[in-house]
């Protein structure tokens, strides 16, 4: 359960990222957030796991307060929230397995972490997570040798290795070609359904949002301007979110 009440985020340079946002996301829901770049999508996601501190308002994840949490508490909260990035953010010069286990480092004592001495259990966790995204055969390959889609699946496996209750994805398919984007979205959807992990995904394309979002949240200028099911997100809703009508450019090509 993610609860935001009257959350405002003001960056040091004065830009308002989130403007008095109140939201409640129940367990297991698959939520897609859409909006123009700069509308506050990224800020919303980064505020949920505390990477961006809220200026005012309160925010809790599974009953733990994120706002006002100490460094240590914040680390504990983050360890239960998986995160996926547009640029994958893998460490390219090491193996896929090491990358996946990185997700579980919060439980590994520092001396084992420094020497890279993983237990059989940790490796088992790595394999299982890779199997879940169907890329286990690459476990000992260097991450730099994978394609973009494969890298993003490794990044999902890394997030899974955290054993998360919440999964956040910041434009996970923006740097992928359309067919790969579909596959990655399907992976996220399957994980959400099989494991019941609450999932919040930022997307640029509205059609992907409609196809995958159990619930679609539209943002503009840091405010929530639309909140409904994928079916509700009609052209009128689009105009409210994007401030103009739908054109062919707004639809992910390769999907009719």
């Amino acid at each position: 359960m993610i609860e935001l009440s009257n959350v405002t985020v003001r960056y040091p340079n004065g830009v308002v990222g989130l403007d008095d946002v109140s939201l409640s996301i129940p367990d297991g829901q698959f939520v897609v957030v859409v909006g123009l770049s700069g509308a506050g999508k990224s800020t919303l996601i980064r505020t949920i796991n505390g990477l961006v501190p809220a200026t005012s308002g309160t925010l809790s994840v599974d009953g733990s307060e994120v706002t006002g949490a100490s460094k240590k508490q914040l680390r504990a909260i983050r360890s239960r929230i998986g995160m996926i990035f547009q640029s994958f953010n893998l460490v390219k010069r090491t193996t896929v397995m090491n990358n996946v286990i990185m997700g579980a480092l919060h439980d590994v004592p520092w001396y084992r972490s420094v020497l890279g001495l993983w237990t059989a259990q940790e490796k088992e966790l790595g394999y299982t997570c890779l199997e879940r995204v169907g890329i286990v055969e690459k476990a000992w390959t260097r991450a730099s040798q994978l394609s973009g889609g494969q890298q993003q699946r490794v990044a999902i496996a890394r997030a899974l290795a955290q054993n998360p209750t919440v999964m956040l994805a910041d434009e996970p398919v923006a740097s992928l070609d359309p067919p790969t984007a579909q596959m990655v979205m399907k992976d996220l959807q399957r994980i959400n359904r099989e494991l019941g992990i609450t999932t919040v995904v930022n997307l640029h394309f509205l059609d992907l949002a409609r196809a995958y979002g159990e619930r679609v949240i539209g943002m503009r200028d840091g405010k929530v301007v639309f909140d409904g099911t994928g079916a509700d997100a009609d052209d009128a809703a689009f105009e409210r979110i994007y401030g103009r009508s739908l054109t062919a450019d707004d639809v992910l090509p390769g999907r009719s």
Binding site: N49, L51, L74, R75, A76, I77, R78, S79, I81, G82, M83, F85, S87, F88, N89, L90, V91, K92, R93, T94, N98, M102, G103, A104, L105, H106, V108, W110, S113, V114, G116, A155, R158, A159, Q162, L168
Partner: peptide, 26 residues
């Protein structure tokens, strides 16, 4: 990027230096 990922997963300072920075500078 990898540092942001390490932070988002709640890893400690030593772990994030070892795994998100060291392979890059090796």
């Amino acid at each position: 990027g990898p540092l942001e990922a390490a932070d988002a997963s709640g890893s400690g300072t030593i772990s994030r230096t070892r795994w998100a920075v060291l392979p890059q500078i090796m």
